[in-house]
C-alpha cells in the first residue's frame, strides 16, 4: 500500500518563519517510513532547500512585501517527494539562473544552485498569476 502525505502551509512573507519551515522539512524526512537512505542527510537537505526556496520567494518573488504570503505544498509518496513553493511575484527564469554560476567570491546567487544540486528535478512555472517553484526528490 502506498503511503501518501500531503501538507499545505500559508506562510507570512517574513524571514522569521524560515527556521520553522526548515525544521518542518527535517521532521518530514524522519517521517518518510520507506526511505532507506541517509536520513540525517536528507533531513538537512530538506531544511536547506525549503529555507533557500522560501528565502527566494520572500525576498525576491514577493520583494519583501509584508502584505504578501508564500504557499508551500508538499506531497510525499513512497517513491517521490514533491515540494512546491508559490509566491505572488512576477516569476524568474530558473534556467537563466542556473547558467549564472556564482563566482567563488560572490556574496549571493548560490541559493538556486544549491537547490538544483540537492533535488532531482527543479522547475519554475506561472500558474494562476503565481510563481511556482517545483522541486522533486526521488526517494530510494
Amino acid at each position: 500500500m502506498t503511503t501518501r502525505v500531503e501538507l499545505n502551509f500559508k506562510v507570512p512573507n517574513q524571514t522569521s518563519y524560515l527556521a520553522m519551515i526548515g525544521q518542518m522539512g527535517e521532521t518530514l524526512a524522519y517521517s518518510l517510513k520507506n526511505f532507506h537512505g541517509n536520513r540525517k542527510e536528507l533531513a538537512y537537505h530538506l531544511n536547506l532547500v525549503l529555507t533557500e526556496a522560501l528565502t527566494n520567494a520572500i525576498c525576491h518573488g514577493n520583494a519583501c512585501d509584508p502584505e504578501k504570503y508564500v504557499t508551500i505544498d508538499i506531497a510525499a509518496t513512497d517513491k517521490t517527494l514533491v515540494i512546491k513553493v508559490i509566491d505572488q511575484g512576477q516569476g524568474f527564469d530558473i534556467t537563466a539562473r542556473d547558467k549564472i554560476k556564482a563566482a567563488p567570491l560572490d556574496e549571493s546567487g548560490r541559493g538556486i544552485n544549491i537547490i538544483m544540486k540537492l533535488m532531482d528535478k527543479v522547475s519554475c512555472t506561472r500558474e494562476k498569476g503565481m510563481n511556482v517553484l517545483k522541486m522533486t526528490k526521488y526517494l530510494h
Binding site: N47, T51, T55, S108, R110
Partner: peptide, 13 residues
Amino acid sequence: RFIDSSGLGALVS
C-alpha cells in the same frame, strides 16, 4: 548546526 547561502554570503562579504 545549519547554514544557508545567506550565511555563507555574510562570511564571504
